[in-house]
Nucleic acid binder design. Structure first.
Lengths: 291, 291
DNA sequence: GTGCGTGTTAAAGAGTTGTGACCGAGGCCG
DNA sequence: CGGCCTCGGTCACAACTCTTTAACACGCAC
C-alpha cells in the first residue's frame, strides 16, 4: 500500500520515511461525478481520502490531521472567501487547493493571496489535480511539518516528534531512532497494526517472511516504556494479528476515560478506544478509515 | 527548554526590509513583452528580479540565493524536462514555476511530478503569475525566517549575526563563515535537525548521499566551542537522526520536554538541574518499582 | 498435547559517527 | 608573479551504537 517508491524521489534517501507516509486529504465538493472519479484515483495512489459535503470549521478540521484540503468555492457562496481565509490563517500547515469552475484573474489572485496554495479550474483532469495536490503538499511537508508537529501525550507518555524522543515527565526514555519511529507509528493509530504493516511503514519496504525485527523492537519498546512508566501498559498484542497501541493502567480491562494522574497526561488519547479487552480479540484489522 | 537562552535581542530596530525579506527570483524566458510587463510588476512589489536568457546550471544558480525560478519550458527544447528535474532535485528549497504556452495534461502532470511547484499557462496575467509565485514561495520563506539579525545568547555563548561571529564574553571563537552559518542555523532551532536539512539550508542545495561535510564541520565547531566554553556542551548528536543545539552544562543530560518558549529564562542552564543520571545503562530486569 | 505464534535473550553484523590527516582552491603579501 | 596561509571539503580509519539474526522458552488456540 505504501505508495512509496513512486514519488519518493526527493531527499528521502535517508533510510527513515518519517511521519506517516500517506497523504490525508479532504475534498469539499458536491459534484458526484467529479468526486467519484477523483476518489478512485486517490485510492489508487494510497491517499486517505475524506469527502465533505459542507464546510467544516477549523475546529472540526484540525483533529482530522489533514495534509491537504481541496475546496470548490462555488458551493460556499459569498462566504467562500471568508472561509478560505480563515482556514488558511488558522491552519498554516494545511495545503489548500481551490478547484472550482471558471473564474476571473482577480478571483484567482484573491484566492491565492488569501492563502490558497493552488487554483485549479474545473473541468480538470483528475490526474492533474492530484499532481497539484502533491506538489503543494510536498512543499508543505518540507517546510512546516517538523516545526508545527505537536507533541502528544498518551497516559504518562509524551511523544515529541521534534526531538525524536519520548518522555515521561522530564525523563527521556532514551529511545533509538527506530524505536521512536515505531512508537510514533503505533501511537498515531488506534487500530491493530499487522507486523507487515508496521515493517513496511517504518522500514519502507516489504517485510521478509519470518522476520522477527518488529517483535524484537516491540519488546525493547515495552521494556523502556515499562521502565519509565511502570503501572501502565501501552502496546498490546493481538495474537495472530499484530499490535495495538493504547495507554492502559495495569490490570484494567477497559480504558477508563478519566484523567490520568500523571502531569499533563489528560491530553492523551485515553479516549474512546472502544475495543473490548485487549486479549483474545480476533479482529481482522481492516482499517475503518475510508481509503 | 531554552536552557540557556537569554535573548539579548539587540534588535536592529528599523532596518530596511530584512536582508532576506525581499523575494529573489530569476526568470528564464525570451519573450520581451512578457518580460517587460512582468519586470515592471515585480519591481513594484519589491522583488529582486533577474532575467535569464539561457538555462544556468545549478552550480551557477546556487550562489544567486534565489527563492524562486520561473521558467518557460519552450525555450529549453527537448532537454527541458531533464533540466527541470535536475534543478528541482538539486535545489529542493527553490520554488520552481513553469510558465509556458499551451500544454497537455500529461505534460503538466509530468512537470509537477518532476518537482515543479506550479504550472501557469501562457498567455497569463502577470498579476496572476506573481500570485502563484508568492503562494509557492510563502511556506518556504517562513521556514527560513529564523535567520534574524539579532544577537542571542546561549549559555556562555553569544551569537552575533551582524558580525558573522560567535563570542564567549569578549573573546571571539574565530569561526569561519561556514562554521558560523551552521552554528547560526542550529542555534536557531530547538529541534533535531537532520544532516540533509542542515546541508540544504547552509549549502543551498541537496546533500549527496554519503557526504560527511556536516559531520566534519560540526566537529570543528564543537572543538572551538569546547575551547572557548569548556564545561558546556552545545551540539548534541542524535544517533541515526541528526544534530540538536541546546546549551547544557557538562555532565548533565536532561532535555526537558516542555514545548513552550519561555523568553524569561535567565542566565540559562545555570539553574542546576540535579538530574539523576539519565542513564543510558538501563539494562533490563530493573523492576525497581515492583510493577 | 501439539503446533504455531510470541516473548526473551545474547551475540554477530551492519551502519553511523568521531577524528586526524590530507589536498586543492583561493586570497593575501612580499 | 610566486609563495604562504586559510578555508572548505574528502578520505580512511577507529570507535561506537544500533539492527538483525538465531536460538530457546513460553503461551495460546485447536
Amino acid at each position: 500500500m505504501n505508495t512509496g517508491r513512486s514519488d519518493a524521489r526527493t531527499a528521502d534517501a535517508g533510510s527513515a520515511p518519517r511521519g506517516q507516509g500517506r497523504l490525508r486529504l479532504a475534498v469539499l465538493d458536491r459534484d458526484p461525478g467529479f468526486m467519484q472519479v477523483l476518489s478512485k484515483r486517490l485510492d489508487a495512489r494510497g491517499c486517505e481520502y475524506r469527502p465533505l459535503a459542507s464546510p467544516l470549521g477549523t475546529d472540526a478540521l484540525v483533529p482530522m490531521r489533514l495534509n491537504a484540503l481541496v475546496v470548490d468555492l462555488a458551493i460556499l457562496g459569498p462566504t467562500g472567501w471568508t472561509y478560505l481565509e480563515q482556514v488558511c490563517a488558522r491552519m498554516p500547515s494545511l495545503a489548500v487547493i481551490v478547484c472550482t469552475g471558471p473564474s476571473s484573474v482577480a478571483q484567482r489572485v484573491r484566492g491565492l493571496r488569501l492563502g490558497a496554495d493552488a487554483w485549479v479550474t474545473k473541468p480538470c483532469h483528475p490526474e492533474e489535480l492530484i499532481s497539484v495536490i502533491e506538489a503543494a503538499t510536498r512543499r508543505h511537508r518540507r517546510a512546516e511539518m517538523p516545526a508545527i508537529e505537536a507533541s502528544e501525550a498518551f497516559g504518562e507518555l509524551i511523544v515529541r516528534p521534534d526531538l525524536y524522543q519520548a518522555y515521561v515527565g522530564e525523563r527521556s526514555l532514551e529511545l533509538t531512532a527506530r524505536e521512536f519511529e515505531i512508537l510514533q507509528l503505533l501511537s498515531g493509530s488506534d487500530r491493530v497494526l499487522r507486523r507487515e504493516e508496521i515493517y513496511e511503514r517504518v522500514w519502507g519496504y516489504a517485510m521478509a517472511h519470518g522476520d522477527r525485527s518488529v517483535d524484537v523492537f516491540v519488546r525493547k519498546l515495552r521494556q523502556k516504556l515499562r521502565a519509565g512508566s511502570p503501572g501502565w501498559s501501552y502496546i498490546h498484542t493481538h495474537f495472530g494479528v499484530g499490535y495495538r497501541f493504547a495507554p492502559e493502567r495495569e490490570g484494567e480491562a477497559a480504558p477508563a476515560p478519566e484523567a490520568a494522574e500523571a502531569p499533563g497526561a489528560e491530553a492523551g488519547a485515553a479516549a474512546p478506544r472502544a475495543e473490548g479487552t485487549a486479549d483474545a480479540e480476533r479482529r481482522d484489522g481492516v482499517p475503518a478509515v475510508a481509503g
